[in-house]
Amino acid sequence: MTIPVFYAISDDFTKYAAVSLNSLVKHADSQKNYTVYFLSQDLSAEHKQDLTDLGSDNVHIEVFKINDEIVAPIQNRSENYLRADFFTMSIFYRLFIPDLFPQYDKAIYIDSDTIVNDDIGKLYDTELGNHLFGACTDTSIQFVPKMIAYIKDVLALDPKKYINSGMLVLNCKAFRDEKFIEHFMDLLETYHFDCIAPDQDYLNEMGDERILHLDSKWDAMPNENTAPLANPSLIHYNLFFKPWRFSNVQYEKYFWESAKETKFYSELKAELDNYTEEQREQDRGKLDHMLAKEDKTVKDPNNWAQVKKRGSVSL
């Protein structure tokens, strides 16, 4: 049996993904077998090799090219912008995993801005039952009033149950049996819901009441309001808490410990050293830009909350 783990990346994110992959391989149980897939549309031959080189005897690396036709219905439209800032197709790749890989009834997906600090096989052992997927509550937004208001008033969901999609244990069989991707495409093309986090909002809405909430140690996110977890199993440098751009980021030591073991260490250190205060200020400003979307979407008569209230959408 192989444990399938998926990443979704664009070519310019390879160096961060390599640091994550290195940490995953380092903590993998030598008695288990893993296949790690990188889903991409534009990965260069050099970067494919860089990632493949990080594999081991029991951690096998595969690069899977996402066919343009598969994701063609997902358009570069403002409602599909990540964090209300820019469009990237890669955030949607995770939704297609069950259909693209019918040989797996269960799979793990993790974002590339992560560090694996424990055997990922333990996460795979999660019993999902009838749940669509397992995930962790999004702790990065629990102290952001506008984001809480967005989840309550625009999505009509409980903020304490709103999950982060950067780590998912997917019930692939249930996704296929219930034609999840067809339903997602239908919602996307019919309503064009204006979202702050498009893939994440759809997963929360479509998975509502069928999400298995996992221990927060499997998606530990840096924030400035809580103490760090003592032994995080998976660290997710979500939003703008990137240790390659900011110093003194919570959990940064784990990133740099793994980065030192990759060919990209010098490049990553140079990125941190050369990132200007002006650029950092622009990054901080992106959070305000993201949150400003709440002001607009809460008044939208066709937001999630209003459409659900009218009973015109079946989730």
Rank of each mutant, 00 (worst) to 15 (best):
F96T: 04
A135E: 10
I163S: 10
I66F: 00
A107C: 00
D186V: 08
V169I: 14
C136P: 06
R280Q: 15
G129C: 01
S266A: 15
L168Q: 11
D215M: 05
G55V: 03
Y191A: 04
W304S: 08
I235M: 10
G207H: 02
D29H: 07
M185R: 13
K253L: 08
S266F: 04
W256Q: 07
Y254W: 10
K146Q: 13
D42A: 07
R176E: 03
F13W: 08
I141D: 04
I91T: 13
C195A: 05
S165W: 07
F101A: 05
N274D: 07
P159E: 04
K160H: 12
S247D: 07
A18G: 08
T114K: 07
D119L: 07
A135V: 05
G129I: 12
L43N: 12
V5I: 05
E278V: 06
A220C: 11
L95G: 09
D201Y: 07
Y34P: 00
L168K: 05
Q200F: 06
D99R: 02
D113T: 02
A197P: 07
N67M: 03
T14V: 02
S233R: 13
V25T: 02
L157K: 14
R94E: 12
A305E: 12
D295V: 02
W304A: 03
E278L: 10
I163W: 08
K173R: 01
A270C: 06
R284V: 13
L212I: 01
M167H: 01
I91D: 06
L272G: 05
E224P: 01
S314G: 10
W218E: 07
D57K: 10
E69P: 04
F13M: 11
F240I: 15
Q31N: 13
A18H: 07
F6L: 00
V144I: 14
E46V: 10
N130P: 06
N225M: 12
E261I: 03
K106Q: 14
T52G: 01
L43A: 00
